[in-house]
């Protein structure tokens, strides 16, 4: 068994805002908001629009429980200043639980991850199905401290726990016809309220689908994550298992995966289907290729510090992982294959 020794860079209890205080923050705003400009608009608007912009009342009080994991610590990336855990688990794009960043942490706490089944199938010799326990026991777990760059031009540094996707794919022996890998999120509107509520779900189609080229999937950086900050994943971060592709925009890193399929043709992914001019299949972090509606040249790194944190930094090609992945795109016009 591995014994985890806390790193010097680890946050101490004093760095962490007391949960009770933290959970009150929206209530404060909401109370003020309803008394405020919103209330003047009358009941019709306060029931529809305000429910969104001052937060909704659907928040649950009981929290999902995460459990500590055993893993090998990442000693190579200790110099990266990590995003505080409380921010990592409360600022999420997971439209299945609401399209606003604070909603998944509030609406996902009753998500049931055990039992879970993840099937790996398609163009391979030995398709398998992983149960909940397999996810954390089939492969030795390692910590990977990665930068996560969202397509919305903010970023975090997150200590993930997981194993390389390559290990899992080798287990099923892909055929030579396997050129792409398609991932799919759980399809369960009973548990994921965004899936059958257009406004909550942000107008994308469900179930969420993502894809990688086989060589991208086999790259050692590509991680199947089952935890963060030493514990199993909270549901808002994609429990019980998610993908992490650190050189691509965050939306590629699909959450709560139930199916991984090896296929011969490039799949159509969720955001690509919604707005192909804005989101491509590759979605590599590229400061030279702007989103049509905003610049991708720089980003705001979310760490600790409030409104006055001077956290705007230059965005790196491939999110700073060019050394490991640039060769995958040799000869490709990255402004065309964005």
């Amino acid at each position: 068994m591995l014994i985890k020794i806390p790193k010097k860079s680890a946050l101490t209890a004093a760095d962490i805002t007391d949960e009770a205080v933290y959970l009150q923050r929206r209530k404060l705003i909401k109370t003020m908001g309803f008394l405020g400009t919103g209330a003047l608009l009358g009941s019709a608007l306060s029931q529809t629009a305000n429910a969104g912009f001052f937060g909704s009342d659907r928040a649950n009080t009981t929290q999902f429980t995460t459990t500590p994991l055993s893993f090998t610590a990442d000693k190579d990336n200790l110099s990266l200043l990590k995003t505080p855990e409380q921010k990592v688990i409360s600022h999420n794009n997971f439209y299945e639980f609401g399209a606003q960043k604070h909603q998944p942490a509030e609406l996902a706490q009753h998500f049931n991850v055990d039992p879970w089944q993840l099937t790996v199938s398609g163009e391979c010799d030995h398709p398998i199905t992983l149960d909940y326990d397999d996810l954390t026991s089939l492969f030795p777990l390692e910590e990977r401290i990665y930068r996560l760059r969202c397509v919305e031009a903010w970023s975090m540094v997150i200590p993930w726990i997981g194993f390389s996707l390559a290990q899992l794919l080798q287990k099923v022996s892909p055929k030579s016809s396997a050129k792409y890998v398609v991932f799919q999120t759980l399809d369960d509107a009973k548990q994921m309220p965004g899936q059958d509520d257009r406004r909550l779900g942000g107008g994308i189609t469900f179930p969420y689908v993502e894809g990688l080229r086989i060589d991208e999937a086999m790259n050692p950086l590509t991680l199947m994550s089952v935890g963060l900050y030493g514990k199993t994943l909270p549901p808002q971060n994609g429990a019980p298992i998610r993908l992490v592709v650190p050189w691509k925009y965050g939306f590629k890193s699909i959450k709560s995966i139930v199916s991984i399929k090896l296929v011969s043709k490039q799949p159509k992914t969720t955001w690509q289907q919604l707005a192909p001019n804005e989101y491509g299949f590759y979605a590599n972090v590229n400061p030279k290729h702007d989103h049509p509606r905003w610049s991708q040249a720089s980003e705001r790194r979310i760490t600790s510090g409030g409104l006055f944190a001077r956290n705007r930094i230059e965005t790196q090609p491939f999110n700073g992982y060019g050394e490991q992945v640039a060769h995958l795109y040799k000869g490709m016009d990255l402004s065309k294959f964005y």
């Binding site: 805002t17 205080v21 933290y22 923050r25 929206r26 404060l28 705003i29 003020m32 908001g33 008394l35 405020g36 400009t37 995003t83 409380q86 921010k87 990592v88 409360s90 600022h91 960043k101 604070h102 903010w154 705001r300 979310i302 600790s304 510090g305 409030g306 409104l307 006055f308």
Partner: peptide, 19 residues
């Protein structure tokens, strides 16, 4: 008043992860 409250919370970093 909502503005005062908003900026107070944002200043002490209690306004969500990305104030």
């Amino acid at each position: 008043l909502p503005l005062l409250n908003l900026y107070y919370l944002a200043f002490i970093d209690q306004l969500g992860a990305d104030p």
